[in-house]
């Protein structure tokens, strides 16, 4: 399962790689990273068919996660549509509503609960 993680904080990358160390080693999951919405879009342009799940931060300089979400739903929604989970430090209702309306499948708040995320991925894989 290919997962694209979009976050402007570069240190998110080793964190995911280490948290999913076993899964990566077993070949269950592989990660790709983008540091901005723009980078994510150019990545998707070439490899959108590979990506099953997109985890995106909402608050990023430049294109926000919500804009990215609308673009994905507009341009890359050919079935099977990718699962998109939004992540934000501001876990308030307004943000949540906005994300769900824009077509997010799930909404996670920072700090990320990796055990919860793993559970969600398990149900997704089944």
């Amino acid at each position: 399962m290919k997962i694209l993680v979009v976050d402007d904080e570069a240190d998110v990358q080793p964190l995911f790689q280490q948290r999913f160390r076993k899964e990566i080693r077993n070949g269950d999951i592989s990660f790709d990273f983008a540091l901005s919405g723009e980078q994510a879009l150019s990545y998707l342009e070439e490899r959108h068919s590979e990506v099953v799940l997109i985890l995106s931060d909402i608050n990023m300089p430049g294109m926000s996660g919500l804009e990215l979400l609308s673009r994905i739903r507009h341009d890359y929604n050919a079935p099977p549509p990718p699962v998109v989970m939004m992540i934000t430090a501001y876990g308030d209702d307004e943000n949540y509503q906005q994300a769900m309306q824009s077509g997010a499948n799930d909404f996670l708040t920072k700090p990320l609960d990796f055990n919860l995320l793993k559970e969600k991925l398990k149900t997704l894989a089944e």
Partner: peptide, 24 residues
């Protein structure tokens, strides 16, 4: 608050994952 929360998240996450890594 936001600027402190971000690094603190990393501190928590990296220390947690390091504990797991030591077990491994």
């Amino acid at each position: 608050a936001h600027e402190i929360q971000n690094p603190l998240n990393f501190v928590n996450n990296f220390s947690e994952v390091s504990m797991e890594l030591i077990d491994e």
